[in-house]
Design a protein around this nucleic acid. Structure first.
Lengths: 207, 207
DNA sequence: GAAAAATCACCCTTTTGGGGGGAGTTTATT
DNA sequence: AATAAACTCCCCCCAAAAGGGTGATTTTTC
């Protein structure tokens, strides 16, 4: 069984050194290379042929989020584990959308990071609890929505681009009924267009 | 410092007994009650005043997902930790939307469950790696989209209900240009309506 | 039995959407 | 330097859809 080939991209010398040592020491892990920036890594990354790349989000020059799609292009088979100090919602979701395999905050313990690398390599999705909390929160619906069940259902259909008549057909109700529901939705949300209704609803996690 | 009050709802006698013992034994935890179904739990739940509820998804009678909103209504301050054998995408997301605090598969080790209860109580979002993997996968964009950057951007705006003219205004381009982009999007996706475009795009994770 | 939700009806005008065609400029990529 | 892809804008057409007003009936729910 060969070792998991790890590459680290992290600008802070101390942290980089620490991770290097700590991961390389671990049984079954091998740190191939460590870079202080994406620019530095870019030419040698393909040669390194890493299984897992530990990528800092806050990087000088091109940041981790911007670098991620380029890295995926250079070494598509590598799993990328994002490492960050800040857990801002947008950054996390952007990273996940770009194909990050996992997301850890830097306050994670050494063995958490090591096991996260292993999990990422095995196809798992390691996440620190505060990141998971963010994600879970983003899924959570508002429990006291002003909208009725039917209204929520219809707004959901509106939100995926369905027309009134389509909705009417699919719910086996009259077009007029759909109009009426949408009118009430607009009233309750205090908007007067589909786009505004969708925005308001999403902002308030009604859909 | 008082103990974390835990209630377990799980139909399998053996598993329920095991969890009961295992959690109650733990320092700082107290199992107040354990039920075999939601129906059984429903009357006594408020009196139990739990901090964390461990809720099985596969329950006889009303299943865990259906029970979840009712439980949240009975004891809103309790964190609910879902426990399941199956990790189907829809079930997981439904549970998270209904306000589950965390989601574990039953193959999780004893101390993982205990620490998950603690994390849930502390406001974290415990998730087993396979669940996290699901969630991450759901965020991941298709890396080789047929759509151009601009087209993706416009489709994204279409997908949140914006009209052509709104899009034109916001992007500082002509209405005709937007039409043209949308025409090309339809061509590439082989559809001929907004709703179909959105559906196809989402199915293929283009947006 | 009152209130909220869900259903349907008919009026009106404006905007939007989808399809057809063509054509110029910029930006990559080779 | 050349080709392709992306981005931009222009014209035509017309049916469908959206939004607003006002009102009424039935079913659920509390």
């Amino acid at each position: 069984m060969s070792s998991i080939r790890v590459v680290i991209i992290e600008d802070d010398d101390t942290i980089r050194g620490g991770y290097c040592f700590l991961i390389d020491e671990e049984e079954g892990f091998e740190v191939i290379n460590a870079y202080a920036s994406f620019e530095e890594a870019t030419k040698k990354l393909q040669g390194d042929n890493p299984d897992v790349i530990v990528l800092d989000v806050e990087l000088p020059g091109m940041n981790g989020i911007e670098a991620l799609p380029r890295i995926k292009k250079l070494v598509p088979k590598a799993s990328v584990l994002m490492l960050t100090v800040y857990d801002s919602e947008k950054t996390v979701f952007d990273a996940l959308a770009q194909g990050a395999s996992g997301y850890l905050t830097k306050d994670s313990s050494a063995d958490k990071i090591v096991s996260a690398i292993r999990e990422a390599h095995e196809g798992g999705g390691p996440m620190s609890v505060n990141i998971a909390r963010l994600v879970i929160k983003s899924f959570r619906r508002n429990q006291d929505s002003p909208l009725s069940k039917r209204e929520t259902q219809i707004l959901e259909m509106v939100s995926i681009g369905k027309s009134r008549s389509q909705i009417a057909r699919e719910l086996f109700i009259d077009l007029e009924t759909v109009k009426s529901h949408i009118k009430n939705i607009y009233l309750k949300l205090d908007v007067n267009s589909r786009a505004d209704a969708i925005k308001t609803a999403k902002d308030n996690k009604l859909i």
